[in-house]
Design a protein around this nucleic acid. Structure first.
Lengths: 336, 336
DNA sequence: ATGCACTTCTTAATCGTTTTCGTGTTTTCA
DNA sequence: TGAAAACACGAAAACGATTAAGAAGTGCAT
């Protein structure tokens, strides 16, 4: 590997001068600067990130926390899309992306925070994780610039998909399609689930809808079996709903299966709506009517925010950024 | 951050002793070793990866190339699953995962190889990329330990999903279900596509199947529109096939749409089969009969192989490792 | 007592950068 | 003309670790 020393001897200057020339410092002559840069390019020089990091305490590397026990993170369309846009946005600004992990299986285990310090991440984005994990808290409370996605801590920046408005818009659309008996099989165990449920109730009240308790059932996210079971309960009701909302698109298919196994059709006999807007749902009949979350913007905002926290710590607000989604109109909700 | 120097003064020994104690060298007394490790733990010491990398030329970090112009990589279930298992396997061995990119948008652009040198990746795994890109070639031909997935270069290790046997098994299954008029809408522009197509022809010949040219049509991977169009062509044939194979599960849904729009049902009127075994295909009716590729093993093998190349370069074979998939029997292929 | 081999620890150089401070040269201007 | 200011560059320390080589201290045989 060609180092600054090589360039310095090739140019007959000191390493200090080379460093300053390449970093465009003021106190190097224009001609010398040109000459040094020229030969650096010719010799195929690239800096050594480790040496640079050691000296500057900056790695130009972001840690991404993306870990769940059931490995549903990376392989979840929603999070994968967020990560993809996160990655692109970070790369545009010259940052790389490395996964944070806690080396749980290794002998000398590191916590998330320790791992971050070990690698010297300039900033951290928490995408998908059990937010109650004490290690996550430890990380969030550290001095490392941190951005969370879809979860709000009191001292960090958060990029939030607008679940409240999303649910509101979706429910309004369904209402406008003429539905009045609307059931909601809601997700569990997360602030996102709570927000959506609250928004569902509030919007229903605004619209003057009467939602019997039997219309509200829990089912874990992406759990098609649970959604299937919950759907059966709804179909067993004397006054069955005309439209069912699901925790997410994936779970929605569990519901659709329950419906068709009873010989009912979607949307002719009963309407369904999902949440997320995973891509495949646009390619399968019935095309899911769903709330498409803006994963692209979510990832991009997260990257930009954390980089801003790193590079302009003084002037960057600790704020909550809300990203709106939009109702994607498929054909799983029919007009009645 | 607590460094070795802090520990050395706390213990009243030299930094060298601390280093050797922590790295379990022979020439440190048992008691001293214990004491040093004890205080290291107490003081919350963790090494500085940059310093370590600078000195040892080892980063314990793997580069993963996962980039396509259309961003179909991360958001593709197959590759996402491979990456997920890759990540787990690497983490188990103490390696981290960082995405390789070429900073294409930045002023001082780096090639893939340059980026790898800059970050000092110990090894590289090429998962999903345009394999014809000269930059990929440059990377592959470098001295950095490299493993490719689903593509064979002549001088690197490759982890290959067994597309030949996969296609063979799938076709055999379909044959056993009684089908004789079998069409294949095949993927394009990759060695994988070629291998599958060749295996299809060979297996068909072995089975004594007559495959008219009109039964073989191209459609890009994951292109539901193309699959839709190709399916229409097949349905227009006088002697229409009883079963259609698709490039992948995603594309398969394009075909299913074409079929149902003609008022035909899957699998009652016509059978279909996919390839990949994406998870959602097991949750949607009709459950796709497909060849499930073993993404878990693919990712794990790739990580293990590259780490072996790094740690035992002498004794590690440059070989091609083939990972078998298995026919997943859904209900999209019916018995006739 | 001397020499020798161990064992255990230290000294010091090194990896490739960055950065502070200093120095020599040139320019500026009273 | 001479002092101050501006300019262009270099020397050296530092970041936090590793490691070769050397130096004490101990024990044992001679």
């Amino acid at each position: 590997m060609v180092s600054m020393k090589d360039i310095s001897s090739a140019c007959g200057v000191s390493v200090a001068t080379v460093s300053k020339a390449l970093n465009d410092h003021e106190d190097i002559g224009a001609e010398t600067k040109r000459r040094i840069r020229e030969t650096a390019k010719q010799m195929g020089y690239f800096p050594n990130s480790a040496a640079k990091a050691l000296k500057t305490n900056r790695t130009q590397n972001l840690g991404v926390l993306f870990e769940e026990d059931d490995h549903s993170g990376l392989t979840h369309d929603y999070f994968a899309c967020v990560l993809d846009s996160l990655k692109s946005a970070a790369e545009e600004k010259g940052y790389d992306i490395t996964f944070i992990n806690s080396c749980r299986t290794r002998p000398n285990r590191m916590s998330f925070l320790e791992h971050c310090r070990y690698r010297g991440f300039d900033g951290v984005i928490i995408v998908c994780v059990n937010f109650l994990d004490p290690e996550v808290l430890e990380l969030v409370n550290s001095d490392i610039p941190t951005v969370t996605i879809d979860h709000l801590f009191n001292n960090t920046c958060a990029i939030m998909s607008d679940n409240v408005k999303g649910m509101r818009d979706l429910l309004h659309y369904i209402y406008d399609m003429g539905h009045r008996r609307i059931a909601y099989i809601h997700g569990t165990e997360s602030s996102v689930a709570q927000r959506r449920l609250a928004s569902f109730y509030k919007t229903a009240a605004e619209l003057g809808l009467d939602i019997p308790d039997a219309y509200i059932l829990p089912a874990a996210y992406r759990d098609t079996k649970a959604a299937y079971a919950a759907t059966e309960k709804l179909l067993d009701l004397r006054k069955r709903p005309t439209c069912i909302l699901y925790p997410d698109d994936f779970a929605c298919y569990g519901g659709i299966n329950a419906i068709s196994e009873r010989g009912l059709r979607v949307p002719d006999d009963i309407s369904v709506a999902g949440f997320d807007g995973i891509r495949i749902a646009r390619h399968i009949e019935p095309k899911l009517t769903t709330l498409k979350q803006d994963t692209n913007l979510l990832g991009r905002k997260a990257a930009e925010k954390v980089i801003s926290l790193i590079e302009q710590p003084k002037t960057t607000l600790i704020e909550q950024i809300v990203v709106e989604g939009e109702v994607y109109i498929g054909n799983s909700v029919r007009k009645i």
